[in-house]
Structure formats: C-alpha cells, structure tokens
Simulated assay, not measured.
Amino acid sequence: MRIGHLGLALLVVVLWTLSFLAVKLGLRDMPPLALSTARLLLTSLPWVLVLPRPPVPLHKVALYGILMFALQLGLLAVAIHLGVPAGLAAVLLQMHVFVTATLAAVFLNERPSQWQILGALVSFSGLGLVAMHAGSASSSLGSGFSVVGLLLMLLAASAWGTANIVSKRLGPVNLLSLIAWGSLFAWPPLLLASLTFEGPELILHSFRNLSGIGVGAVLYMAYFGTFLGYALWSKLLHLYPATQVAPFTLLVPVLTILSSAVVLNEPLLPWKLAAAGLVLTGVLLATFGARMVRHLQRAPS
C-alpha cells in the first residue's frame, strides 16, 4: 500500500474511533434515540437530492438502512447511555464478524471454516468475561453498566452482521448512495421511537439547551464519522483487495479504548483489557488464521 493511501487508512481509523467518543459526548445533551435520529437525518438530507438512488428495489435499501443504521446506531447509543463504556462498545461491535459468518452459513450456504469456529470460541470467552463483570455501578464487582446494556450491544452487532448479508445480496452499488438513501429510511422509525419512549418534552428541552459540544458531536458523527469515513473507505476498497484493507478496522476498538481513557476518563481495568484482547484475538483468528498458516507454510525454512 502506498504511503499516501496508508495515511488515508489510518485517517479512517481515527475518524471512526472519534465517532464513539462523539456518541458519548452527544449523550450529555440529548437522549440516545433523539441523538441517533439527528445524526441520520443529517446523513440523509440533503444528500439524497444529489446522490443517485441505488439501482436496487427500495424495500431492500430500506431493510439495509433500518438494520445498519436505525438498529445498529440506535442500540449503540442506548447501550452507551445505559453505561457501557465507549471503548468496550467498540470491542463488542466486533462480534458482527461472527453474526455475519453464521448468517452466511444459513442463507448463503457458506460453510464456516475451522478458523472461524476457533475464533468464535476465543471471542465468546472474552464476551463471557464482560458478562461476568456487568452489574450495577454500586456493585464492588460491577463495571458500572447493566446486563441490559451488554445485550443491547450484542443486538447492535447482530444488526450489523445481518446488514452485511443484506448488502452482499444487493450486489455492487455506490456506497455513498447506499449510506444516504439507507439513512433516509432509518431516521423516521428512530424519530417515532424517540417520541414514544423519550417524549417530545425531553426532545425539545434537549434541543433548546444543546451546547456547542453537542452540536459538534452530531455534526461530526454525520459528516466525518459517516460520510467522510465511508467515502475514504470506499476509495481504499476500490484501490486494494479487501483483505489488505480490512485489518485496519481492528485498530478502531484498540484506539477507542485508549482515547476514551484519556478523553472520557474511562478506567483501563485489567478485566476490560483482557476481554478486549480475547475478542480481538478471536476476530483475527477468524479473519486471517487460514491466511497466516498458508503464509507460514510457504515461507522458507
């Protein structure tokens, strides 16, 4: 990979890392569903007026948008609102790799490899470690977030994994168009959920008292974390094989854990680092295990 393109890949990692911090900062001013609604509203409008509609049936674009954006981002925001640390949320979202593999085996007849099975076992051991430490903030063994928050993060990862299968069935489409049009179908159900569960009074109060940090968080998530990040990512995938680009995404949870400790004062607890290491090791084994073995077998003794 050329130096300039390597810099773009690292820039995407930084943009996506800061998106997790932006969610946490935005939640200081807005309830989670309203925050996600505002993010996706800005992601879709006015861009759907200038970007061509993906050349696939609209109901498939709507399904992708609801899964990838409404459910994944909405559940992520609610989980962080309930106390899941931003760094840990970034790690738990990596479970989408195994959801994608499972659904691909069921619906696309793609048989999981032994490395994917081994990676899943390692990652789920890290998930079990997280579950052991989930509890109330007042608990001496708890981590300050509830089991509900953990379950919501797993649902968010499941929504991402399911969206990957839907995306695969769409075939080759312009990624930016898919983001904009998918977001157009994602924010109305989020707005309805926000009005139902958070209430119009709380929503109006949060908008009236929105701070500069809150405004910046929403704008950052919509334009930098989503549009710019995915635009650069799409460019890299066009220039290089996915196998050469994909490993950079594993830097996102690592940097999120470190940056959230600095910016948000999230403690770097030993169990959290161990759980993150297990989850990411499992993802590495599932994604690159077979390739690493073939490389070692070809290497001169």
Rank of each mutant, 00 (worst) to 15 (best):
L42R: 01
I66Q: 08
N209Q: 10
T196Q: 02
L192P: 01
V252N: 02
F107H: 13
I3R: 04
G7T: 00
F145T: 00
L296M: 08
L88N: 05
A34Q: 01
A104S: 14
F145D: 04
S183C: 13
A186P: 00
R291H: 12
F224C: 12
V283M: 10
T287W: 05
L151K: 02
L178M: 12
R294A: 14
G142W: 10
F227D: 02
L127N: 12
W187N: 00
S211W: 07
V12Q: 00
S140G: 13
F98Y: 10
A186W: 07
L284T: 11
A38F: 10
G144Q: 09
A90T: 04
S36V: 07
S143K: 07
A34S: 13
N164S: 15
L63F: 00
R53T: 11
G87M: 05
P200T: 06
L228I: 13
A70P: 02
V78R: 01
F224N: 03
A217W: 02
L92W: 12
L202R: 14
L170R: 06
A77K: 01
Y230I: 07
L67V: 12
D29C: 02
R111S: 09
G289F: 12
E198G: 06
G144M: 06
G277V: 12
P54G: 10
L269R: 11
M95V: 07
I165D: 07
R2I: 04
P270R: 05
R111A: 03
L210H: 01
A62F: 09
T17D: 05
V48G: 03
I203H: 07
L15P: 00
A134L: 08
P270V: 12
M30N: 07
A180R: 01
S136W: 05
H133E: 10
G182C: 02
P189G: 04
W160D: 06
Q116W: 08
A242V: 14
L285D: 13
V99G: 08
F107W: 15
L204S: 11
F98V: 04
L10R: 03
V50Q: 05
V97T: 15
R39D: 12
V48C: 04
Q114V: 08
S158T: 15
L204K: 01
L178W: 02
F124N: 04
Q116H: 08
N265D: 15
A77P: 08
S301P: 06
L278I: 14
N174C: 09
L67I: 13
A70G: 02
Y223I: 02
Y240T: 06
I213E: 15
